[in-house]
Structures are given as C-alpha cells and as structure tokens.
Amino acid sequence: MANDSIWKRLISSLDPRHYNIERWSYTLHRITGVVLILFLIAHMVEIFHISLGPESWAATLALLGRLGPLENIGLWIIAGCVFYHGANGLRLLLNQVFGLLLGKPRMPVYPYTPTSLGKNQRIAIWTITAVVSGIWIWAGLYILAGLGIV
C-alpha cells in the first residue's frame, strides 16, 4: 500500500469502513469541502459572464436552463454540502482550536474507550447530523418546489 499511486492512496484514505464515526465525518468533510471549492469556481465563472455583457449573461443562463431539474438538484446538494461542512467545521474548530469535547488526560481503564472519541464527540456529531438533515430537507422543499417532485 505504501508504494501505491497517489490516486489509489487518496481513495483508500477516504474509505472509512471498519472505522469510527469520526473518520466517516472526516471523509464527508473533505468531500463536501472539495465540492464547495469546485462549486465556487464554477460559480465565479458564471458570475464572470455578467461583466461580459447582457448577451453573454443570458447565454449562460440559457445554458444552465438546459440542465432542467438537474440544476435544482445540484443546488440542493451544494446547499447540503454547505450545511454539513459548516456545522461540522464548527465542531472541528471546537476540537482543534479550543481543545474541547476531547476529555482530559486520565488514567486508562480497561476496556479502553478513548475520550476524544467519547460521548461528547458522539453527541456533537449526531446533533450535527440531525440538525443538518432537518435544515437540508427544509431547504429541499424550497429548492425543489418548482419541480413537481415535492
């Protein structure tokens, strides 16, 4: 594995099977972060067309229009990414900058359950999951409203 190509290694680093929930959220955070960057770039290209004049902007809009319902679904996914990435990012800031939710150094007691992956962390992750899912569904009602799906 140490000799594998960077792509293979990248993929295996994103594979959280057999591991803890924090590693699942690591994978999600990473993927949502990258999706957001890609979206931002695409979005900047889109906006850039405004500066090229009304025709160019109209053409761009027409191009997007041809995506049909995919545009809405895409936007909905981006929205999900923003919510998850943002909320989970706050958790990560609490962990990494403020040293919170980790537990204190302590004397290990068997069976070992590391405090950094302990109850506080679980509560945070499941709260984030619940809240983000809720907001996401609510956002879906708006974004997907015109499509007749909901």
Binding site: N20, E22, Y26, G99, L102, Y112, P114, S116, L117
Partner: peptide
C-alpha cells in the same frame, strides 16, 4: 484533520488524537 482513527485502533488507550488536538 482529526479523523480519530488512531485513537480508535490504539490498543493501549494512548489516545493520540486527543494528544494532538
């Protein structure tokens, strides 16, 4: 990036993820 996998597999409760954060 605090995936925590280290602490998850550590057989001795060293909890490296905690130490690192």
């Amino acid at each position: 990036h605090f995936a925590g996998a280290c602490s998850y597999v550590c057989p001795k409760d060293v909890d490296p993820a905690k130490a690192i954060q």
